[in-house]
Amino acid sequence: MSGAAFMDLATSIALVMLGVALLLSVIRIVIGPTLPDRVLALDLLTVVALAFVGAIAIRTGLMLYLDIAIALSLLGFLATIAFARYIMTRPAPGAADREKTK
């Protein structure tokens, strides 16, 4: 098999795997159960999307996609930081009760 044909097969397999990964992280976002769980799954979702865009860039040969991937990873990082600050300002459900009984 020539390199190009093998690459074509590899990108197909990679896209299927990444699609399943995307689906699994969406399931975690939906079932939660807590806010940090969802934020973590969103963070992973951006990484999966980054890998997805990378695989598409290889498949199509359009390297402009790479810029999208890098911008996406930046955005995911900033979003997680913002969410972390938000989580810090809100006590977890049930945490206030535990403080009282201590």
């Binding site: 690459m7 990679a14 990444l18 975690r28 992973l44 990484v47 999966v48």
Partner: peptide
């Protein structure tokens, strides 16, 4: 190309495992 395809498959597999782990 072979090396790139190998890296691509490994990377996708690790990403998939991360998603399985998160679940």
């Amino acid at each position: 190309l072979y090396l790139g395809a190998f890296l691509l498959l490994c990377g996708s597999a690790f990403t998939l495992l991360a998603a399985i782990g998160i679940l």
